[in-house]
Amino acid sequence: MTPGPLLLFDLLLPAVLLWLAWRSLTSSDLFRAVILFIAFNLLLALAWVRLEAPDVALAEAAIGAGVTGTLLLAALTRIESAAGRRLSRPARWRPAALVLTGTALLAAAAGLLWSLRLLPTMPGGLGPLVDRHLAESGVDHPVTAVLLNFRGYDTLLEVAVLLLAVIAIWCLDEAVPFLQQPLESPLLTGFNRMMLPILLLSAGYLLWLGSHAPGGAFQAASLLAAGLLLALFSGASLPAQWSGLPLRLLLVLGFLAFLAAAIIGPLTGRALLHYPPAWVKPLILLVEWLLTLSIALILTATVIGGRPTGSRPYPPPASPAAEGRQR
């Protein structure tokens, strides 16, 4: 039996999470929904801590607190400037439809919970299997070993998904100015000057940590992306000549490195993604470093939400008209 206060904690946290999710979905004002969702993401990281999932907690904290919140707020600003700030209420349901959906959902819940009771608690799962082969994986931390070696295929395609996301976003629209008008606050520039090196160091720390403890490329990349976002908020942007081929190369670099490492296997008579045992460790480290750089840029590009135009810096500075209004 878990000790008293811990059990209360485990009863209260899911309740708070459910309440936040419910309030986020049903609140009339959209901004309140986004803020409640950000609070939901913060507390979700606590749930992963209680479920003994350190890597997932790190990823949720880094991506949830850093990237998703900024992504939603940026999108909300653009949507409201285009479609106005109207409150939206749920669809007015005919009673029959409401009853039908309600019972369907409750039946699904009952079914799932019932099936949970029948689930046998089979011993060990895949943990012991991973631990047996951990030595050959080139890293000491099981989750990183699974991510980059045993199930490298998922991670390879996952980076491809991220790349596709950027390509899809770039097809839709050109980059709009990231801010209506730059936030010229001396405190912010001072804060950025202090925070950017710290974020860079912490990203390196998480990346180095990934080989023997919870951490790794994705968490490090979201920290780097958060640093880049901080820079964007104080008006920084990539000069025009860098936002052409060099940016595209950097975005694709991580995926290409992983692909090259994967292809070494078949070239040397092994299966795809089967790294030659001699240089497993350096190969994985190199791939992880390049992945971190590319994913950080990809996450930032998704927040900017538009393709770079050859002539202007990426994202373009605030338009002069907005500056005129600036006090």
């Binding site: 936030l183 606050s185 405190l187 804060f191 710290i198």
Partner: peptide
Amino acid sequence: LLVMLSGATVAHLIAR
């Protein structure tokens, strides 16, 4: 220190 640093900055920006 990091919490205090970001807390102070955010407090200033929100107030502003």
